[in-house]
Design a protein around this nucleic acid. Sequence first.
DNA 1: ATATAAGCGAGACGGTACGTCACGTCTTTGT
DNA 2: ACAAAGACGTGACGTACCGTCTCGCTTATAT
Lengths: 203, 203, 203, 203
Amino acid sequence: MRTSKSAGGRPRESRVDTAIAAAVTGVLAESGYAALTVDAVAARAGVSKATIYRRFATKQEMTFAVVLHDLDEAPPADTGTLEGDLGALIERIGEQLSRSGSDVMTGLLADIRADATLTERFTTTYLAVERSVIGELLDRAIARGDLTRRPDPAITQALLLGPLFAWIVVLDEDPARAPELARIVARMVSDALAAGVVPADPS
Amino acid sequence: MRTSKSAGGRPRESRVDTAIAAAVTGVLAESGYAALTVDAVAARAGVSKATIYRRFATKQEMTFAVVLHDLDEAPPADTGTLEGDLGALIERIGEQLSRSGSDVMTGLLADIRADATLTERFTTTYLAVERSVIGELLDRAIARGDLTRRPDPAITQALLLGPLFAWIVVLDEDPARAPELARIVARMVSDALAAGVVPADPS
Amino acid sequence: MRTSKSAGGRPRESRVDTAIAAAVTGVLAESGYAALTVDAVAARAGVSKATIYRRFATKQEMTFAVVLHDLDEAPPADTGTLEGDLGALIERIGEQLSRSGSDVMTGLLADIRADATLTERFTTTYLAVERSVIGELLDRAIARGDLTRRPDPAITQALLLGPLFAWIVVLDEDPARAPELARIVARMVSDALAAGVVPADPS
Amino acid sequence: MRTSKSAGGRPRESRVDTAIAAAVTGVLAESGYAALTVDAVAARAGVSKATIYRRFATKQEMTFAVVLHDLDEAPPADTGTLEGDLGALIERIGEQLSRSGSDVMTGLLADIRADATLTERFTTTYLAVERSVIGELLDRAIARGDLTRRPDPAITQALLLGPLFAWIVVLDEDPARAPELARIVARMVSDALAAGVVPADPS
DNA sequence: ATATAAGCGAGACGGTACGTCACGTCTTTGT
DNA sequence: ACAAAGACGTGACGTACCGTCTCGCTTATAT
């Protein structure tokens, strides 16, 4: 694995990265997570297995990198209300979860939980970022006067993320109704936060 | 697979079923989902692979049957309030989710989603039952006068199940705090239902 | 690797051993040593790679076992003279060396020398046996009165084996002339032994 | 492959050739033939793989060129007797064969036999030269009156080369005893030639 | 009492995918 | 041009697991 800087040598072809990503996405879309073999990806990408393994240590790292490459983790624009802010955030999450079939999300999550390295990376790269985004929205609400104290971000995250996750991944319900669910969750959670149902941030 | 009636032949030893279940549980507890190979289970149970496959068509069926064998799906006792009923239900769900490591739940869910047969069975055996239990709790609340109309059970299920699922499986947070989260969710969801945030049951 | 005795379990199919041996021989005859891949052998034998590796730890062990499986190592019948005895022995060696192309013998020998386990096995199973056969022929000659003392068997072996080996493997000359060479060697070596050119057995 | 005349550009550094040869020799001495990879040679020589491949078409050509680069193929000085001449020749051959481990000679020979180009080159460059040297020694003996007719040089070569080859490469015996064996072979073969055991040169 | 049917342990078998390694080619940046 | 560095396609290796099968044996019920 090349760490970072490189003096000489043939540079990696960006064409290859593109092809791998497209192949992974294509196989997942057409045949599902179970059909995602390294040989299949290599063949579809017109790339050798060795080249894939030059970039990713395992098949799981490859899938992780391709499927979760560029999730938009920026805080949503200020809508003026906590409910609006939360709604925008959850809707985006729902959209991201709906992008692939439920087999992909469950398969990927299982692979992540089966490997400490990936778990660590997933936690710090996505979950922690998302949590800090939530914290930011909460701070906005406090500044606005909508909240009097800062609720526990971990629990808030579970309340926000959970229903969408359950809808799409566990219950395997129609993704088209995800935006509707997102609005309900936004309303429900902002009400609960305002009512002080969620304990204060312990930190 | 033996259909039903047994004419002659040696009867199956119940000892074997016990040993398989214990072996599956043991391997999962000690080594995790990734280490759950049929050979490992067979060896630990002192049983041959053929004997396992006489009972289960695939490894996934075996895992499914052993891990999800006897979840208590009965409606919780009437506590007198919707919040109390929901709390009892969610707390039980949280307890069930916490029983094994998060790798087990994710692995199992991934295997279920990868196989249409298991998905069907999972849906009808657990999700649909749970949903009807939720419907029953809602009907109690209507009879009690706590609710004026029947909310959509699918969405209600997502709101209830989701946060606990996210907490334990996705965020991999401390299961010890699950009961606390369950109480928050019960309060939040019963408030939202009472406030008419959740749309009415379309059926 | 199964050691020897076996209680239960499905017995190995002798059909498989036959098929593997035939496939190895066939590939060698048709395509040469370089084309002898495990996949090719498996495909040609209608056998899985795993089955091959259940029998042989490495490709080299397989080749060794198949190519050198049943060399006739019995001492040749007493011809009444040392020269006759040696001639019979060398002729047989030449015939064995001529059986496959020179690439097979060189490839196999290279693989043997590259692996300590195979070297050990080759030495004790073939070279040592051949040497003891030579010793036996020498003892016959001593009993007969053709020799007055026992020549060094190691050197005698080199003198006997070497020319045939060189002819077929190193010089890659016409194997059809091997019997002629064998007779010359038999005459030459028996003369040299009788003349006391070879030092006595140090052991 | 540069053909002949050098137009422009940076000239090849002879330093590189030396480094490659040293690296090949070093790897062979320290780790054996199996460890002789092009990458290993390049790394040890401080040279790039491309540079190696600019000089040699294949790894085998490189090894061939380095290991067999400057064998002394000149006819030995006239010792006054056929036995003496042959002894000098064989002793040199034995010394050359003993230079590297038996894995190197067998590996190299296998690679040569696996490639028609190398086989051709090996035959004409070494075997044919050696054979003509042998012919020269035989002619000296005829001129001297030690022999009355010219024996077949091919067979004579097998008789001379074989025992040493068997001793060092096949039997893997102590190279220190090679000179002793060489003397025995010289005596034995010159006796056999004088006795007319070897048929006359058919050419 | 014995024949039939099936359970069972052991382990061979075909198949599929994994991740590794080496070869020989190619593409960049120096020099 | 040649050189170092190293990416790339190719193809073989040996491993692991799955689900099926074939043995020889045991254990019930049905004649």
